[in-house]
């Protein structure tokens, strides 16, 4: 599927600010399931962008605006071709939970087994995770049950939590947006030693009634590592296995690693932020 994404972030400051340092994670990665054909990132006031790969292999664009400015606009326009990432007839069942122990030394898995900024492994969430696991002995099945548990027990609401809400807090509230759903799923997976990472990206809503959540903004879900099979995406906000309707921007231990825009500046705190995201299909007329 060929998808086009427009993602705009606008900041307005009440008085001019300066010395703004920012990092963007808005450039879709390319891998065996998706290919980024083009990505244009545009910043106003205009400035030079530098690009590097971070430790998680995500593409980061960095820029500085030393001079005074009272608004900042960041736009990205990407075209991405996606392929079906899973064969729904051959999901990676059959790996026993008892094999997880072996994965702890794998460099691929190691950062995704621990507590991180938004995820804490503690007795309370561990007990919950054990309850959700019930008598499942299969890795993928357990992860799937965690996704289902969250989807069924969480209320989707964007007025309760904020961008800073911790995963364990979301798990207590059982309310929030996709970021909270994803963090909560990470907490439960990691409590059971299933390597699980946070994914930032977009989802194209192919449903007739536009019922998918998260299509109007940047979206987030998780991926779990099943040894021998690789990473599998699970979207607890929509209760589904990630397929070709999803575009990955980047992955990390949690939101902190992949936040689309982060930075600091010198200036007065109150400000407004506006985000617009559009995802369109380009290779078909069915939309």
């Amino acid at each position: 599927m060929r998808l086009y994404v427009f993602h705009q972030t606008k900041y307005r400051y009440p008085s001019p600010v300066k010395d703004s340092f920012n990092e963007l994670r808005l450039y879709p990665i390319s891998n065996e399931w998706q290919k980024c054909e083009s990505c244009f990132i545009h910043v106003l006031p205009s400035t030079q962008l530098q690009q590097y790969l971070d430790l998680n292999g995500n593409i980061v664009n960095h820029f500085e605006i030393p001079q005074d400015h009272s608004k900042l606009i960041i736009e990205s326009r990407s075209t991405v071709t996606t392929h079906s990432r899973v064969d729904f007839n051959a999901l990676p069942y059959g790996k026993k939970m008892s094999t997880l122990k072996k994965m702890q030394g794998q460099s691929e898995a190691r950062p995704y087994l621990q507590s991180s900024s938004f995820v804490e492994i503690n007795p309370e969430s561990w007990r919950l995770a054990v309850d959700v696991q019930a008598d499942s002995q299969d890795i993928f099945q357990t992860a799937y049950m965690i996704m289902e548990f969250i989807f069924q027990n969480f209320e989707y609401s964007n007025s309760i939590t904020s961008v800073e809400t911790h995963g364990n807090q979301a798990l207590k509230l059982r309310k929030g947006v996709c970021q909270d759903f994803a963090h909560a799923a990470l907490v439960l997976c990691r409590c059971l030693s299933i390597p699980a990472r946070y994914v930032s990206g977009y989802v194209f809503d192919r449903t007739r009634d536009q019922s998918m959540r998260g299509a109007e903004a940047s979206h987030a879900w998780i991926e779990v590592l099943v040894n021998g099979f690789g990473w599998f995406g699970l979207d607890p906000t929509n209760n589904q296995v990630v397929d070709e309707n999803y575009i990955v921007l980047g992955t990390g231990m949690d939101y902190k690693d992949v936040a689309p825009v982060t930075g600091t500046y010198f200036g007065k705190p109150p400000k407004s932020m506006e985000v617009n995201v559009t995802v369109k299909r380009m290779d078909s007329s069915d939309r």
Binding site: V17, S20, N158, V163, S200, R213, T262, Y265, K268, M273
Partner: peptide, 17 residues
Amino acid sequence: PLELQNVNDDQSMQAQQ
């Protein structure tokens, strides 16, 4: 002069929804 009234502040982050 600018730093006088200002503090170092973080850019607001967008929640993923």
